[in-house]
Design a protein around this nucleic acid. Sequence first.
DNA 1: CAGTATCCCTCATGATACTG
DNA 2: CAGTATCATGAGGGATACTG
Lengths: 137, 137
Amino acid sequence: MTKSAAQRRREAREEYDAFLAACPSRQLLDRLADKWVALTLSALAGGEQRYSELSRAIAGVSQKMLTQTLRNLERDGIVVRSITPSVPVRVDYRLTPLGASLLPVVQAIKDWAEQHMDRVLAARERFDARDPQRAAS
Amino acid sequence: MTKSAAQRRREAREEYDAFLAACPSRQLLDRLADKWVALTLSALAGGEQRYSELSRAIAGVSQKMLTQTLRNLERDGIVVRSITPSVPVRVDYRLTPLGASLLPVVQAIKDWAEQHMDRVLAARERFDARDPQRAAS
DNA sequence: CAGTATCCCTCATGATACTG
DNA sequence: CAGTATCATGAGGGATACTG
């Protein structure tokens, strides 16, 4: 008898715990909770994209960070890289099913930031006015 | 005539765009897409927690990072700090309504990492076996 | 207890230059 | 076009010591 998806999920939830410093999921959390990951996956939401398209969509990302981010995501099974050996070469990236399951999660952070920016800015002003000393970055 | 919440949200979605390097939401995304933010808010999911309770719950966090994270979250209106002037002093943190709306979003990343750790580890092994050269961190 | 203040150093990131 | 390689910088983050 095979285990249900819900069963496996429950077990995994017990097996890994990001609250523990040494748990592998802590490192994975650190990799996924990243600005470039959120933007890269969001850019891939519409479907396959070329390297240059991603580079343009994600304003301000350096070649190094984009490549590094994509390489890590590829290694973790979240995106797939496909090469068309034309001249010049063409490289496309797309989400795997695993990546598709992660997309809504990281996109939600990006969306939350965009949608609540005003309230956060207002909160910062109140904080800085009330307590100028503790106001940091 | 006042605008509906949905209207305001739609406008905000157009007003801020984290794909743009100079947009304030890009910086906010950078602050929120953070390991310590995800763990701190997750720890506050159960309700008000003392500083020392948070410190214990989030294994491996330094005083500096915990304090810094809490201060930024407080400034952004995501958590509230309340002091009980006893001896010794007691400080509690809890989510604001704004923070409560962010909680599921960041908790989802932590949960995803815990629940898909096995698949990610398997993907890494496949990648490293297939292509040892490109295998990085 | 709940921080603040320093020192210090690694590593993440950006800029630049080069290549199949 | 889609990277790789190298260098340089500075901010992130840990360790330690001190305080109301």
